[in-house]
């Protein structure tokens, strides 16, 4: 976390937030169990419900416990996470897709539209990635320019307070 979030007031605020998030996580777990016990759902529905709750819990952990909420300005973390999730999602998706595409008896022929879409996806993915990279690179240069005077200013104020 950057310097501006070191003040005692902010830490107190954070601690309150941490208890809140802890409560949310416990509640999420309970809800998951209760739904499982109380309702009989098909696999698809229970997967969607269960994983959605998990996703909500996970985003609370990342945002608050891991202070991503206050770190996301930090371009490198964002970049890493974006990259990871692109690759993770890509891997999951493609592996799933590969499995679904295996010809089996009784399964219908694959329509022509899918290979075409697949090829388009192959074009769009790297293009969008290139665009993203350019954007991030130019952004980080801007951050570098901004950052230097800011920290100087902070140091000055701190000295004043100490006096």
């Amino acid at each position: 976390m950057s310097d501006s979030h070191d003040s005692p007031n902010f830490i107190q605020y954070l601690i309150k937030l941490f208890y809140l998030v802890g409560g949310v996580l416990v509640a999420g777990t309970l809800i998951t169990v209760i739904i499982d016990v109380a309702f009989k759902m098909s696999l698809a529905v229970s997967a969607i419900v269960g994983l959605s709750i998990a996703l909500v819990k996970a985003s609370f952990v990342v945002a608050i416990f891991m202070h991503y909420k206050w770190d996301k300005k930090l371009i490198m973390i964002t970049w890493t996470m974006i990259l990871t999730f692109i690759f993770f999602a890509g891997m999951m998706g493609l592996i799933m897709w590969a499995e679904g595409d295996i010809p089996r008896w009784g399964r219908e022929e694959v329509p022509v539209v899918w290979p075409v879409l697949a090829s388009l996806l192959g074009l769009i993915l790297p293009a969008s990635f290139a665009a993203l990279t350019i954007k991030i690179l130019s952004q980080s240069a801007a951050v570098a320019k901004e950052a230097a005077p800011k920290t100087k200013a902070k140091r000055v104020t701190r000295k004043k307070k100490k006096d």
């Binding site: 590969a98 595409d101 295996i102 290979p115 697949a118 090829s119 074009l123 993915l125």
Partner: peptide, 17 residues
């Protein structure tokens, strides 16, 4: 490996890219 045609088409495209 007999993965199927769609996935082969996709990976062929990316490979040539």
């Amino acid at each position: 490996t007999g993965m199927g045609t769609v996935i082969s088409a996709f990976f062929q495209t990316t490979t040539l890219l």
